[in-house]
């Protein structure tokens, strides 16, 4: 036993006002964490202010707001009469995202139900890892698949002159969005208490009846959020859509038509547009528009999830 253990406390005054190294480390970490925490908010606000400053004057200045959104003619580089109408671009983005969701929703919900409700043990863990791996594939790789594999496949299968269009980019975007939607949907299913399943099974419900009558209704907010975030992903995706959609300005009449997306337009043209020109500002206006749409979609997803949390 060491000699200093068990000795009575010293009678000298207590040194309560001494700040050791620990105190300074603690303060430093607090400040660093605070800076890290608010930086995301500051950066997002900064981005919003920047694109607004660059773009917002445009639709109120040289261009009618109405015309900007309803004219299908996007001819920013025309020498005689440049026009800036984003209708065709909006239709392009909407049609590609719409088709992508038609593909991604059944696939991702099916995958989530299988992983969450049917698969067990190692199958389940392996599938989860694989799905997360899929979500990490860079979008340019997906675009590459669209160009190199889907394009000739569509040309051959449907006997059409070009395979780059709504169908191609819709499928690619659907496959891209499915993994993240699967992960979120599976989380939503996992959040349903197992007691509900047990209760329904004990009443004689089959597996499918348990899922359709109990689990889906209980998880519907989370599933809705998964779909909404998938839509947000679809709107925002740039590179894969740029590569697989054909990138030609078009009001499409069939799924084989080429289209151009809002995001792809910005990516392809901003580098060539002189800073401060009408073209430059028009692209920034598209940026504001996209920002607002994805903001609203994410906000909706958030509200939907919170709505579910409150009820439970």
């Amino acid at each position: 036993m060491p000699a200093d253990v068990g000795q009575p406390p010293t009678k000298t005054a207590m040194d309560l006002d001494v700040r050791g190294q620990d105190w300074y480390v603690d303060k430093l970490v607090s400040v660093l964490v605070f800076v890290g925490g608010i930086s995301a908010v500051v950066l997002i606000l900064g981005i919003f202010v920047f694109i607004t400053k660059e773009g917002v004057g445009f639709v109120f200045g040289p261009m009618e707001v109405w015309e900007f959104f309803t004219s299908p003619f996007w001819r920013p580089t025309s020498r005689t009469e440049a026009t800036y109408g984003i209708l065709a671009l909006m239709v392009g983005t909407a049609s590609v995202t719409g088709l992508a969701m038609l593909i991604a929703v059944p696939f991702s919900l099916g995958a989530a139900v299988f992983i969450g409700e049917f698969a067990t043990g190692r199958t389940r863990e392996t599938l989860k890892v694989l799905v997360e791996l899929l979500a990490a594939i860079p979008s340019v790789v997906w675009g590459f698949i669209g160009l190199a594999i889907m394009n000739p496949l569509i040309i051959e299968t449907f006997d059409v002159p070009i395979g780059l269009g709504i169908l191609n980019s819709g499928i690619i975007l659907g496959l891209m969005a499915a993994p993240i939607m699967t992960t979120i949907a599976e989380d939503a299913l996992k959040a349903v208490p197992d007691g509900y399943r047990e209760a329904a099974e004990a009443m004689g419900a089959t597996k499918w009846q348990v899922i359709s009558k109990v689990v889906f209704p209980a998880a519907k907010n989370g599933l809705m959020a998964a779909v909404l975030l998938g839509v947000g992903r679809g709107f925002g995706e740039t590179m894969a859509v740029l590569m697989a959609s054909g990138h030609s300005i078009n009001l499409p009449t069939s799924v084989f038509d080429s289209v151009r997306a809002l995001t792809a337009t910005i990516a392809a043209e901003l580098g060539e547009a002189p800073v401060g020109s009408d073209h430059y500002r028009a692209l920034f206006t598209i940026g504001i528009f996209l920002f607002l749409i994805t903001f609203v979609i994410n906000l909706m997803a958030d509200i939907v999830i919170r709505g579910g949390g409150r009820k439970r």
Partner: peptide
């Protein structure tokens, strides 16, 4: 099992009404 559990009902330790 569905037929069996129609004949044999069960009440659990923790009340477990469905979220309906």
């Amino acid at each position: 099992l569905a037929r069996l559990r129609r004949q044999v009902g069960m009440v659990f330790q923790r009340p477990n009404p469905l979220p309906l």
